[in-house]
Design a protein around this nucleic acid. Structure first.
Lengths: 254, 254
DNA sequence: ATAATAGTGTCTCTGAGACAATATGAG
DNA sequence: CTCATATTGTCTCAGAGACACTATTAT
């Protein structure tokens, strides 16, 4: 504690016992349909939890996280913890809320900073081998919400889910769950996986025919300028798209 | 610090020296045009700053704020500080970011939680008499951004301004700056005051003719069901509107 | 009458929405 | 040829946008 001037007295009050970062790591896992070879996979939103090995809440599942050091920002702490848990880097991670209710942590006065991370399934696969699978595990979000999680992590998860649903529809974060090039059916599936109520029967036509909206995605072409397509999921090849660098600006008044 | 179990060792590390809340208090002040009696006033977005009386940054202007106590959440702290500075209650206040860069506060390791509050000009008027005007003062935001503010408050103010501009167009926070019943010209002015680039020549028609959008505002009628109007700003009376309780849900995909 | 704001008429054109129909090509 | 997904055709109707025009009423 620096104390340059005697007039400063904040240090006479009680100070917090820690400022951890907790991270809600979402991923979408695809499971191939067994019925047919070429078909859109079933997708599920999952969240990564760890089983606590020490007091408090020993043996219960919790969000990954850890205490911030005085030499880093809470954001850097979250990135570090994310890397320790999942061994992935360059991942979308963003701050979304603070949790400071007195008594929320039996270890003392601990103000937690909650982040959410979106990790592409393929990038998360390395992790499986790296850690003990019984202590770190992916759960379907709908199952995790029924579990008795440590601390106030149920609330944090609920808030994170609400946040990701809003952002899925108002920003281009869907790109975090997709390969660089994707078909519009894939995009539609991803959105529906995160936002169950989302239904747009004319989804493909809408995104391709609307001039205003088409600024967020563009057709992929090969070197010769021919449209690039994929028949990964269907007999008939589908046009590939990529996200542009544009972020849309929405308005309720225009 | 509670230490129920010897296995717990977080307390052996350095802990933060404080978790204050800083509040960006925005208001819009109207100044009557002198030229004519009935005319829309000139409006300006202003922010409340206080002059620091002690080290550090003594004599510089800063955002109001103060340290969180261990018996309250940071949100409750912000509300308390807001009330101490402005003597207004029941005001729109929301959390928007955390600031934790090491060294941001010369008093030590201090992680600040930034809130923004939107206060209706009329409700802020009581304050003028209550406090020493030389220490607490409203500044035009564009002027405040040019000042040499204490700590990283320039950054916080910049972020708050960006946040309020986004929210002004995507939520109904405009209601915070308006009386319960207002004309559409007033609403248009408020939006333009906060978001300089906003221009919708057909603003009134748009809000009144669009079925989808009209769910956020509704016409005010008197007891007999007749339209209620105001001629405060014009010779011809204008229809009064109020916000409904609906919050719009925007989407880039629909 | 003037001034200042409020609101309407009219036209064009884009695109949303519904839904049927056709395309593709591996198995 | 069948199946599953991709894509187009066609029709209707709402509403965005432009811009000129009319309405209201204190002064």
């Amino acid at each position: 504690m620096v104390e340059n001037e005697s007039s400063y007295s904040a240090s006479h009050y009680r100070t917090p016992d820690g400022a951890p970062a907790d991270i809600v790591i979402f991923t979408i896992v695809s499971t191939e349909k067994q019925t047919t070879k070429k078909a859109l996979p079933h997708r599920e939103l999952q969240v990564l939890l760890i089983k606590r090995k020490i007091w408090p809440f020993k043996g219960q599942w919790a969000l990954p996280g850890g205490f911030t050091k005085e030499t880093e920002t809470v954001y850097e702490c979250a990135k570090r913890e994310l890397q320790e848990e999942t061994a992935v880097e360059d991942v979308h991670i963003e701050y979304f809320n603070v949790y400071s209710t007195p008594g929320r942590d039996p270890r003392g006065w601990i103000i937690s900073h909650a982040f959410l991370a979106l990790v592409n399934e393929q990038r998360l696969e390395k992790r499986a081998a790296a850690v003990d699978a019984s202590d770190v595990q992916l759960f379907a979000v709908k199952d995790a919400l029924k579990m008795n999680l440590a601390f106030d992590h149920h609330q944090i998860l609920t808030d994170a889910l609400q946040g990701i649903r809003r952002k899925m529809l108002t920003t281009t974060i869907a790109k975090q769950f997709l390969p660089k090039e994707f078909t519009l059916s894939e995009l539609y599936q991803i959105i529906r996986t995160v936002v169950p109520g989302f239904e747009e029967p004319n989804f493909i036509r809408k995104l391709t025919s609307t001039k205003s909206r088409s600024s967020i995605i563009e057709e992929v072409t090969d070197e010769k300028g021919n449209p690039k397509q994929s028949n990964q999921y269907s007999q008939r090849a589908a046009q590939l798209y990529r996200f542009t660098n544009d972020e849309p600006h929405l308005s309720i008044y225009s």
